[in-house]
């Protein structure tokens, strides 16, 4: 319970960066923090105490594994997070090349 709540606090720090920061790189960092928090929350929900990783190493071994489904879902999410982060950073780079600043309060004028 406290473990899950600390993941939510990490999520809220990322949301704080997205909502209140005015630097584009800080906003992308906020998105990355949210992704970490949600991945970690899923992996923690699937954990069972004193159980093994879900890999069958011996024939007829007892099936005492942690939950494999959240791990499979998070494996998908981590890779998608990399793609979205790269896309956001390339947009930020193009905006910098045009306006010479990362400050979103100064990126107001319609140019070009």
């Amino acid at each position: 319970m406290i473990m899950f709540l600390s993941c939510i606090i990490l999520y809220l720090i990322g949301l704080y960066a997205i909502v209140t920061k005015r630097n584009l790189i800080k906003i992308v960092i906020g998105f990355a923090l949210i992704e970490y928090a949600i991945n970690l929350l899923f992996a923690l929900i699937g954990f069972r105490s004193n159980m093994l990783a879900p890999i069958i190493t011996k024939v007829d071994m007892p099936h005492r594994f942690v939950d494999p489904i959240p791990q499979a879902l998070v494996l998908t999410t981590i890779v998608i997070a990399l793609g979205t982060t790269a896309l956001m950073l390339s947009v930020a780079l193009r905006i910098y090349n045009r306006y010479k600043t990362f400050d979103i309060a100064k990126i107001r004028k319609l140019k070009g």
Binding site: A43, L44, F47, P54, V66, Q71, V74, L75, I78, V79
Partner: peptide, 11 residues
């Protein structure tokens, strides 16, 4: 630590 080695490698 939560027994997810595949996730650790990818992460």
């Amino acid at each position: 630590l939560v027994q997810a080695p595949d996730l650790a490698i990818v992460q």
